[in-house]
Design a protein around this nucleic acid. Sequence first.
DNA 1: AATAAATAATTGAAAAATAAACAATTAGCC
DNA 2: GGCTAATTGTTTATTTTTCAATTATTTATT
Lengths: 151, 151
Amino acid sequence: MKIEEIIKSTKTLSVAKRTVLNVFYTQNIVSEKFAEILKPYDLSGEQYNVLRILRGQNGNPTNMCVIQERMLAKTSNTTRLVDKLLLKNLVTREVCAENRRKMEITITQKGLDLLAELDPKVENHEHLFAQNLSQDELEQLNNLLEKFRTI
Amino acid sequence: MKIEEIIKSTKTLSVAKRTVLNVFYTQNIVSEKFAEILKPYDLSGEQYNVLRILRGQNGNPTNMCVIQERMLAKTSNTTRLVDKLLLKNLVTREVCAENRRKMEITITQKGLDLLAELDPKVENHEHLFAQNLSQDELEQLNNLLEKFRTI
DNA sequence: AATAAATAATTGAAAAATAAACAATTAGCC
DNA sequence: GGCTAATTGTTTATTTTTCAATTATTTATT
């Protein structure tokens, strides 16, 4: 469905405006579907994201600032996000010995197990949307988004 | 910058996963820049969106459910959003005569003036990103996003 | 060594989002 | 008319986010 129909615009919109709206709307659709997957696990999108970052470290602990830097939404409050994960025993938090200002966050086995359980569902989610395009089109879309967001 | 570099992924990601990440990340960049524009006017992105919907009605009042339906993020609490706009005298709210369950929301002159002041800045914002692509590429991006999000 | 500057993370208060319960009104049906 | 169900919005409580200020530690400077 065209973005004009979705927002029921009577005027014709510039292609620039349409693109911004499309980026917003598409992200919204994708993230709502994603939230549905995480809901039963009582996990928010950002919490999932942090767990994934931690797993990416292959067992090595990760500082708060490294997590922050790798999150997609830079404005998030990493401390509170990690607090939530701690409460669920999905991660551990310890003071770093070399630099006591830093905190070392490590994903627990429980966290790894949760991610392992989610993996197929997440792949499914990605596939749900990706299947609408050919491999070539997906590569194109990635390239266009990358160019578009450059400031 | 490629999405793998941004999230500093060591593994290679499927094109499906890359696309989802790119959609998320791009929306984030665009909306952060947009928030900067609105900040001095003490307006959130969603509040701006509601004002724009109301202006689109050309002076005709609009029900809450119509507003809700046209918002990009369906989960927002429309009542609260409109409350905020009321407090700033950007809209009015009256009981609908035909169906007294409904509320008629109308944008005020002050609201219209605010939008008029924002218009060039918003266009500027859209242009900031759109200028990275040719007209053809923009159309392509719109088409690909539209296809991609189809469920 | 003492002080200033920079870095890392936390905290508190305010704002916003989310979900569930509630109230009012309308509409359909017998 | 009177009963039931559906619609429309508001309210309340809870959780999250956001923003600015603060604490603790380390590094740099005098």
